[in-house]
Write a protein that binds this DNA or RNA. Structure first.
Lengths: 241, 241
DNA sequence: GATGACCGCGTACGGCGTACCCAGTTTTCG
DNA sequence: CGAAAACTGGGTACGCCGTACGCGGTCATC
């Protein structure tokens, strides 16, 4: 908590610290980006910084806090760069959703950290402020706005998860879609031929032939986001009159 | 894979196995339900069954496969109990979404397993068949149906994640919402008073005062699902003509 | 210059997944 | 019927992990 907001006070006695929280968190994020969250261990991060493992504990109570700090760090965000309330609530929500989507893209490990709670660090609060400001023109009560926002964020997380699964499958075992179907295929063909899945068996062949990770993954995300916002728009119109 | 579909053949020689895959997976699910996925270790599961740790490896190549099997096992599902295509695509999608939602409710660890890929076991395929059948009346091409389904599933996963975060926060540290605000509050109050977050500061006080876990969590889920399906309905109408 | 606070970090403990290997059991074959 | 083969159970050990503990060196203060 204090770590997140940087309100801890330096004691005056004793040697100056050779490290900073920032450097530690930065190193951890670098490792996570490059090798996945699984590679982020206290030993590994310490090695990255050329210090002993236990030195990190002078700056952090434990690994959990490190993960919390990583989460808030990558949420850094400058509202001035993005459309304000005058652009309309839909544009703002789209901006937030796409920003979050790209965040998941840049840091795929985001979904894999045990996020025991939505920790509110400075950057997260900053983003929240931006969003609420963007919804100021909406004729709903505050709690309802928050709910809609949570729904959109939830959708983004879900979509990111869908894509992450594909990406991980490929990375982890070095298996591509093609190889995967080679392994999985026979079992499925057998299942299809069993006659227990008539509707599945009748699907056209190209049904599953698309890439979740590239442009088509983005298209899927946008399709869902568009539908969700359509529904929300109708709701706002109906309720807000 | 073979494990999932149960197509492995028993060798004739040697002693009969004292365990079954089913018992192992069942024990693992029991442990996960009761104490979270973190408590599921090979040693723990073996202890639960009263056998040595390494005995499990006679039935499973490793822990990853155990998790895969757990996932498919809890996806057991009897299509006959649920509305068929005659009820309309929306009802079917709602059924699927609510089923998945309740599944996450019953097995909160579902989201925490590193689902490297959407493994298609018999139960998952079964559910997929049901859904596709339910969409047979929709005037869209097959790939598009699948995409809409993925979007809905993604939304459910995201919503479940939102709720999971709240639940975990409470369980993990035994901290309730109230205590949490006691800790987090001062920092946020300070942030609010800094004047950097005018719109947040102006939110009514009850904005965040709702329980993600109980009925209000369900209401949030239903609200989002309704909006999403509204948007999908408009889309189908527009495209399917 | 002594004192006490603080930093870096080596060592050690208890957990984990699992590779390896041996002993015991059951079936099959000569 | 005895021996060999095939299989199961599981003990031991290795290399990871997070981190509790404590020690020696460093620096601001009295």
């Amino acid at each position: 908590m204090e770590l997140l907001w940087g309100t801890g006070e330096r004691p005056t006695r004793g040697p100056k610290p050779g490290l900073t929280l920032d450097r530690i968190v930065g190193a951890a994020v670098t490792v996570a980006d490059a090798e996945g969250i699984g590679a982020v261990s206290m030993r590994r991060v310490a090695a990255e910084l050329g210090v002993g493992t236990m030195s990190l504990y002078r700056y952090l109570p434990g690994k959990g806090e490190l993960l919390d700090l990583m989460l808030d760090r990558i949420a850094a965000f400058d509202p001035a760069e993005f459309p304000g309330p005058e652009a309309g609530w839909r544009t703002v929500l789209e901006t937030v959703a796409r920003g979050s989507w790209q965040l998941h893209h840049r840091h795929p490990w985001l979904l894999q950290v045990d996020q025991t709670r939505p920790l509110l660090g400075p950057n997260s609060v900053n983003a929240l402020e931006y969003t609420i400001r963007g919804l100021s023109g909406v004729a709903l009560r505050d709690p309802e706005k928050i709910r809609l926002l949570m729904i959109v964020e939830g959708y983004v997380a879900g979509a990111a998860r869908t894509r992450l699964n594909s990406a991980l499958a490929e990375k982890r075992t070095g298996i591509t879609d093609e190889e995967w179907w080679k392994i999985q295929g026979p079992f499925l063909v057998q299942a299809m031929e069993s006659g227990r899945y008539p509707h599945l068996a009748q699907l056209s062949e190209d049904t599953f032939a698309f890439d979740d990770e590239g442009d088509e993954g983005d298209a899927l995300f946008e399709l869902g986001l568009g539908r969700l916002l359509d529904g929300i728009a109708a709701y706002i119109e109906r309720r807000g009159g």
